[in-house]
Amino acid sequence: MRALFALIVTIVMSGTAFAQPKAKAVETTCDAIEVSASNAKDPSIDPDIKHIQKKLTDFPASWNVFKKLSRASVTLEKGKPAKLDLKMGSGEATLVEIVDKSKLRVAIKIDYNGKRVVDTTVTVEAGDYVVVGHPISGSKKDGHLLAVTCK
């Protein structure tokens, strides 16, 4: 009886000793900027997205008006899809893995009008941008863009 009791106490206390602090999950924080692009007589860009102006104007299209629809900071945990709250359609991003400490393998999915528009996996350096775009139904001249950068 005494030996059994001592054994139970040993197991319980050893379990506590063995319990290692939970390792921090592999994750990255992404900045997701949703933009509507169109063409007008007077060019304009939302001040909130001025810092990515080059990436949008370099886009091979004739747009000159860019409006921020939404902007969100999303934490991606490895292997766990995270919803992107978009004003137009819906999106999802997943951190597949971190490569060579500085590159991110990210999967991005965008749905618009209930249909999948794009499903892509990109390996990109931390700090670089991935911009995914598609024409908006109707005129099909205006664009819906999603710029994502992670670090």
Partner: peptide
Amino acid sequence: TIEVQPAALRAAPVVESLD
């Protein structure tokens, strides 16, 4: 978590799959 390289040292992105 992740090392951010200087812009000049960054490798070009690779699109692994596109559907």
